[in-house]
Design a protein around this nucleic acid. Structure first.
Length: 264
DNA sequence: ATGCCACCTTCAAGGTGA
């Protein structure tokens, strides 16, 4: 089988600050589709020209200062849904969905920046759980299409103890709360597969290392960036990898890309 | 219990992240 659709997800922690790192990665990996999170700029401030010069179409849902998600695609972008349904009052730019015209037919792709939710005693945690419930409802409706669907992004969930270097450090954290894990598991029971779990599944393969406390040098990371898929995509999954080398660059993002290849 | 680092806005220092 040939890899006809290579898709990457990356929380870049400011696309303008990170533009050099991102362009370098795209030149090396040549993904067809890229889901970006935490672009931290308004839509009109997005560096469209740099990506268009590399052959990407851009769908962007920006926000001043915080959050912000985007999808880059070498294929035509046929329709877009900016924002997660279920709460018209939610103004945080954390969800962007589009349909891309891949080689063998349409593929629905979403770039997801799930709320952090800390501290757990505040309304931020309630917002996180409500957001996850909305994602579950929306995913349920999308799965009814029985088409290739890829939900990629920063889920801000430590799904199991082996996804962090020391569970004791995270025991009171919103990323590891029982309610958070239950909502993430519910996505799986809906019928969404996790690309990493299917093709690799090793523990202690992290996608985020804090800037503080020398976390990178000590490999004190967490695995919170994921590519979830419908069965119609899962059946065509070829391989997945974590591009951890990007964390060793000058002025890196605190997250690294997760990259999957599909026969789609 | 807090800051650590690095981002944001906009030039000083507080908000945010995980």
């Amino acid at each position: 089988m040939s890899a006809d659709l290579k898709i990457a997800t990356w929380n870049v922690n400011s696309v303008r600050t990170r533009i050099g790192n991102v362009l370098k990665c795209l030149a090396e990996e040549k993904p067809d589709v890229v889901c970006l999170q935490e672009i931290k700029c308004q839509t009109e401030q997005f560096p469209y020209l740099e990506f268009e010069d590399m052959g990407y179409n851009c769908a962007v849902l920006g926000q001043k200062s915080y959050n912000g998600v985007a999808i880059l695609s070498k294929f035509a972008i046929e329709e877009t849904l900016p924002g997660l349904p279920g709460d018209a009052s939610d103004e945080q730019a954390r969800y962007l969905e589009c349909v891309i015209a891949a080689n063998k037919g349409p593929v629905r792709v979403a770039s997801i920046y799930l709320p952090n939710g800390n501290p757990k005693t505040t309304e931020k945690f309630d917002y996180k759980l409500r957001w996850m419930q909305r994602l579950r409802e929306h995913a349920k409706s999308l799965l009814k299409f029985e088409e290739p669907l890829i939900l990629a992004g920063d889920y801000n969930v430590i799904a199991k103890d082996g996804h962090c270097w020391d569970p004791a450090v995270w025991v009171d954290d919103a990323l590891m709360a029982d309610e958070t894990r239950a909502e993430f598991a519910a996505l799986h029971w809906l019928g969404l597969d996790n690309a990493w779990q299917i093709k690799d599944g090793r523990d202690h393969q992290y996608t985020f290392w804090d800037y503080q406390r020398g976390a990178w040098n000590k490999d004190h990371g967490i695995h919170i960036d994921h590519i979830l898929m419908s069965p119609q995509a899962s059946d065509r999954l070829l391989d997945v990898k974590i591009a951890r080398e990007t964390r060793a660059e000058e002025r890196p993002s605190d997250h690294v890309p997760v990259i999957a290849s599909f026969d789609l």
